[in-house]
Design a protein around this nucleic acid. Structure first.
Lengths: 164, 164
DNA sequence: GTATTTGCAAAAAATTTGCTATGGT
DNA sequence: ACCATAGCAAATTTTTTGCAAATAC
């Protein structure tokens, strides 16, 4: 929130530096990414962007995200059973906490495992680019809900299949 | 490879215990999952299964994987830009090494972060179910390839006086 | 002015689902 | 025999792409 403006400027600059054109649509996507803690989906980014730029297309959002991903400024969080979420606030790998019920994604500030990256590189001979460390669980809200209404509560956002 | 048989039996038993019927198709999927280190995709599982059971359908593979995932015996590794891969050899969360060039996925045997899970649970109030710790990088083979490609591509002239 | 980028709509992937016949228990 | 499951094809969902028109630089 605080650093959102800074991050927006940073991303805009980097786009320019790399020879990309800064269109209003791209700027809008950047703004949404930099100012949200929500790790939004493409659809959510699209909706937010269209508040200010109703002419923006979904394809453009995808294309912009592809550019930012290639630049290494945005990380795509693929998740089983739902569409990808995007993290553009912090350029560096950091752990996430993901509620498997409601889909909420939170940044974690636990000690980074930076040294482990180097350890892995040394041991395996890989050149490590980044890593993902995500914890999946049930958030307090959803835990409370499911205690009370186990069967009725099928997460509002999370589509889970029911199996006998 | 050694423990494959054991793991196959284990999975079959667990299916039975939970009231699922053990069909030849399901057994075949289990066999592929338990005996491969490759973290196969659905398509690869499908192809392997069809060697022995050519009548098996892709939908059945998906359905079987859904069952095994729900049982917590198979983990779906979602990856940006490609279809999911499945890890059914070890039931417990463990880190992976993923080559972003060739897609190869290798199990890592570095120290588990079990205590971190509990730490996260304590700190956040989430009930942690599992976690993902994956390192993305370029494997030695692919690194070699791209070095050669680059050299060939740059050509003799450009090489003479370039920055270290 | 020119090359990139947009938006659209259509295509391509990837995954799921509904329904009936089949087959495990 | 009963009911879960397989197979198939159609439906969904998610993401990508080709191309003419618009536009950032």
């Amino acid at each position: 929130m605080f650093q959102a403006e800074t991050r927006i400027e940073e991303l805009i600059s980097k786009l320019r530096e790399q020879g990309y054109r800064v269109t209003p649509q791209r700027a809008a996507v950047v703004r949404v990414l930099a100012s949200s803690q929500e790790h939004p989906s493409v659809e959510q980014i699209y909706d937010s962007v269209r508040v200010d730029f109703p002419m923006t297309s979904l394809a453009t959002v995808y294309k912009t995200l592809a550019v930012l991903k290639d630049m290494g400024e945005v990380f795509e969080l693929t998740i089983a059973g739902q569409s990808s979420r995007y993290d553009g606030c912090r350029p560096h790998s950091h752990p996430h906490l993901i509620c498997v019920e409601c889909g909420r994604i939170t940044d974690l500030d636990i000690a980074p495992v930076g040294e482990t990256c180097e350890k892995v590189a040394k041991r395996t001979g890989y050149r490590i680019l980044h890593h993902r460390h995500d914890f999946f669980g049930v958030c307090p809200d959803c835990a409370g809900d499911s205690e009370h209404r186990e069967e009725a509560h099928v997460g509002a956002r999370a589509q889970q299949r029911l199996v006998p």
